[in-house]
Design a binder for these strands. Structure first.
Length: 839
RNA sequence: GCGGGUGUGGCGGAAUGGUAGACGCCGGGGACUUAAAAUCCCCUGAUCCUUGAUCGUGUGGGUUCGAGUCCCACCGCCCGCACCA
């Protein structure tokens, strides 16, 4: 057998070709095996795979390969989330067409993925930017429209008044447009919405069935949906009108010291019509972007309308303010403000010198306790509140609601934080929304037989704004209803729509419809979905909604697309920088020679500062290029590194030393594989036990996606095998190691498998069987403690009785010395674990 | 600001309320070699009065025979906040 080094440069390509030739990873819909759909979030084709992708896809790949080895028919596909802004930016900056740029990127990235040896079914590849995909999306959109799940309404966008264009939140930097630098304004536009709010209850309920999703994701979605029970009631206003408000804290109604309305509330608008100060205040509120983070951190500002609101119980006169922190989208767009028990109201009251009454306290005795510089939103007992005094918060809520309901002045009401999903984008590179505006007939859907509405190729990116809107011919169409002249909708769909059903298209790709329901029924739900935590809310909620919407209109049966979810951490790297004239200049890892304590710039030999370990980004230059690394170490060492050390849900710090270590382990395993000898005999019971234990542990770890632990087990077995005497048990352990690492280091495993003279591809071999009888230990280590402190350890037969363990412990010399004549009060014995003497 | 995470040796991390630091990296010492690379072996939390003991899991409290793990308060960092994907 060869003693040469494992050479990934030749082996990787050879085995990738062998898998292709065997069609090893093509999913067979007609298979009788149990199915397993393993999916990683598909990438945006930015041009290069980054190391975060490598980590994501390596995890999915290990699981997919493992599932295949354990007898599953695996669907493990790959596609491209190919619409989006970067393609338009490239078009503006480099004068290339978004389509050409995107397709080139896809080709380059596909090559990179192949180079890593992922067990993907490339026959099902899709790209969302092709009419073969987005045409079906248009059909689905129309189906939702027919079901009444699509609406149009006004909503605010970030408007750049200089470039005369809509900006994405990301394009608003410190309240200014990223190109023009002009202060951004909020502007209302008629837009398309999907009625996700119709599914709020269902989406919330459904979380309960997703018990293998991370709790944190379910909690985030629950809070995002934000179901709250509250009270809607109306204030009588001094101008004779009534103002409905919504509150989730009716128990604090006696603490209301003012009323606040959103700047775009109808009442605010009517005040502004007669008062130019009010109008200019509202205009001031329109400044800045649309994000809630921005709204929440902005200074609280208000305008006193001069109108008074009559408190429903006390009759007190409360001033009505227009306030920038009140949202028109939530509740009624008007609130009763209780500064003592809401932080936003508190800040506002301080600024405008309004009363801050206390109506909730820890106890009745603290009814007049002053506030410590902030609102108290916690639980307690109601005080200073007439008939509510002494009640618990929850009881007081019910009491206020029932009183106002009895008087016919208000109603208990459930309100959701979740808003309808605005899917309109005023951009070119997206799925055209299949509608036509006709002056006579209104908004008319494009007939199915005219789909897809294809994006025009001849577009101009030299002017800001939507190229579809100023295209000379594309938007002119005849009305499908009356045949008269009409214009196409020039908004395109949010790219989150594209990613809300791609997993259905992976199940089957008929040309004449979005998917084959029978194939969807066969493959869905996805057994394991893997992606970044940054998608915890939006993408995952939208995909859940879209799936449920299609189920409601009878197109599919499945309601939850992802049976199990895993959110992996980022890949990070330390940064290298120098201060240069007050500016920080960053250097890339390959410009640096790294020593134990310091880092030097290769170009001039001078020292650079080693900065914090942060997410890899172009701006900090702390990226590593997968191609370079794979070329140097081979795919397997890189894959192994991606799985080692860090728990997959946490960040993984990239390091040269780490990848070097993985490279050494690849070679170490290769040497060990070379020692396989099918002909030897001789037993080694301890090694055999260890082998079975490792197989069981690795299987358990891989199924739990605890790859770092699986890796540690493999290291342990490797060391044990190296130390073991030659014999049949050792050879069998070596053969087993090849199977254990096959999902992780498939090229090395194939090469070894062949060298050992085994049949077929290791990728298609069966996972080694475990003899559970060999998993049980007959001896265990018992910790001996005195007052919880370790004094000695002893070995005892597994399952020894409590009395036996206690006797063994009390006879132990070290423990006796520690107790040293003190009175033994109690002895705690945990069988197979420890004995703790309390003395 | 709001919501959700996270914090353990020089580093990444392991540990059903029960022996803290498995496994890997770095570092130190040794073997092999003309030499280097590669490889192999040993050591490697801190402190001290070093056959042993004390301290030690972001900080401060608490519950428990026993806390990295449970509870309360705080601090740092990370993710999301609806037009980045």
């Amino acid at each position: 057998m060869t003693t040469e080094r494992f050479d990934p440069a030749s082996a990787d390509m050879r085995w990738q070709a062998a898998w292709d030739a065997a069609g090893a990873f093509v999913a067979d819909s007609n298979s009788a095996k149990p199915k397993s759909f393993v999916l990683e979030m598909f990438p945006y084709p930015s041009g290069r795979i980054h190391i975060g992708h490598v980590r994501n896809y390596t995890m999915g790949d290990v699981l997919a390969r493992y599932k295949r080895m354990t007898g599953h028919e695996v669907l493990h596909p790959m596609g491209w989330d190919a619409f989006g802004m970067p393609a338009e930016n490239a078009a503006m900056e480099k004068g290339v067409h978004p389509g050409g740029w995107t397709r080139d990127n896809i080709e380059a990235m596909k090559k990179q993925l192949k180079r890593l040896g992922f067990a993907l079914d490339w026959s099902r590849e899709l790209a969302t930017c092709e009419p073969e995909y987005y045409g079906h999306e248009q059909a689905l959109f129309l189906a939702l429209y027919e079901a009444g799940l699509v609406t149009r309404k006004e909503s605010e966008v970030n408007w750049d008044p200089v470039d005369m264009t809509v900006l994405a939140n990301e394009q608003v930097i410190d309240g200014r447009g990223w190109r023009s630098g002009a202060p951004v304004e909020r502007r209302k536009l008629a837009q398309w919405f999907l009625k996700i709010t119709d599914f709020a209850d269902e989406l919330l309920e459904g979380l309960g069935t997703l018990d293998t999703w991370p709790d944190k994701v379910r909690l985030m979605q629950e809070n995002w949906i934000g179901k709250s029970q509250g009270l809607e009631f109306s204030f009588d206003l001094s101008n004779g009108e009534r103002l409905p408000v919504y509150t989730t804290r009716p128990d604090t109604i006696f603490g209301a010291s003012f009323v606040a309305i959103a700047p775009d509330h109808p009442l605010a608008q009517s005040v502004a019509a007669q008062n130019c100060d009010a109008a200019s205040f509202i205009a001031l509120c329109k400044r800045g972007g649309t994000t809630t983070a921005e709204m929440d951190t902005a200074e609280k500002l208000g305008f006193d309308t001069g109108i008074g609101a009559r408190h429903p119980f006390t009759g007190a006169h409360l001033p009505v303010f227009i306030a920038n922190f009140v949202l028109m989208d939530y509740g009624t767009g008007a609130i009763m403000a209780v500064p003592g028990h809401d932080q936003r109201d508190f800040e506002f009251a301080i600024k405008y010198g309004l009363a801050i009454p206390r109506v909730v306290a820890a106890s009745a005795a603290e009814a007049d306790k002053p506030f410590a510089g902030e609102a108290e939103s916690g639980d307690g007992v109601v005080v200073n509140s007439d008939f509510l005094d002494g009640m618990a918060v929850e009881d007081a809520k019910r009491e206020v609601i029932s009183r106002l309901e009895a008087e016919g002045r208000g109603t208990g009401k459930t309100v959701w934080r979740l808003r309808d999903w605005g899917v309109s984008r005023q951009r070119y590179w997206g799925t055209p929304i299949p509608f036509i505006h006709c002056d006579g007939c209104g908004m008319v859907p494009v007939p199915r037989d005219q789909l897809p509405v294809v994006l025009p190729e001849d577009v101009d990116f030299q002017t800001p704004g939507n190229p579809l809107d100023r295209h000379p011919t594309w938007k002119h169409a005849s009305c499908p209803s009356c045949g008269g002249g009409a214009v196409r909708e020039t908004d395109t769909l949010d790219t989150f729509v594209d990613s809300s059903w791609y997993f259905l298209r992976f199940a089957s790709q008929p040309a004449d419809r979005p998917f084959d329901p029978a194939e969807v029924a066969k493959w869905l739900p996805v057994e394991q979905y893997i992606g970044g935590i940054e998608h915890a809310i939006l993408h995952l909620l939208y995909a859940r909604f879209w799936t449920r919407a299609l189920a409601r209109i009878g197109m599919i049966e499945v309601k939850e697309p992802f049976a199990s979810l895993f959110t992996q951490g980022m890949v990070t790297h330390e940064t290298y920088s120098r201060e240069d004239g007050g500016r920080t200049v960053y250097y890339a890892p390959d410009e640096i020679s790294r020593e134990a304590e310091r880092a030097l710039l290769t170009a001039d030999g001078g020292a650079v500062e080693i900065g914090r370990v942060v997410k890899m980004s172009k701006s900090k230059k702390n990226t590593v290029d997968p191609d370079t690394i794979v070329a140097r170490y081979g795919a397997d060492a890189v894959r192994w590194f991606m799985l080692s050390d860090s728990p997959p849900e946490r960040d993984l710090p990239w390091s040269e030393a780490g990848i070097e270590g993985c490279w050494r382990f690849v070679q170490r395993l290769w040497r060990l594989f070379g020692q396989y000898d099918a002909g030897t005999t001789g037993e080694d019971q301890a090694l055999t036990r260890r082998r079975h234990r490792t197989v069981a542990a690795v299987a358990q770890d891989v199924e739990a996606l605890a790859f770092n632990k699986a890796v540690a087990r493999i290291y342990e077995l490797t060391s044990a095998v190296e130390k073991a005497a030659p014999g049949a048990a050792r050879s069998e352990a070596i053969r087993t190691l090849a199977l254990l690492v096959a999902p992780m280091m498939p090229h090395l495993a194939e090469e070894a498998w062949k060298a050992m003279g085994q049949e077929g591809l290791v990728s298609q071999a069966a996972w080694p069987a475990v003899d559970t009888a060999l998993l049980v230990e007959d001896e265990v280590t018992i910790a001996l403690q005195h007052m919880g402190k370790l004094r000695d350890t002893i070995t005892a037969p597994k399952g020894a009785s409590k009395d036996d363990l206690e006797a063994l412990a009390l006879a132990n010399e070290k423990l006796q010395r520690s107790i040293a004549g003190a009175q033994v009060k109690k002895v705690i014995v945990v069988p197979d674990r420890l004995v703790n003497v309390v003395a």
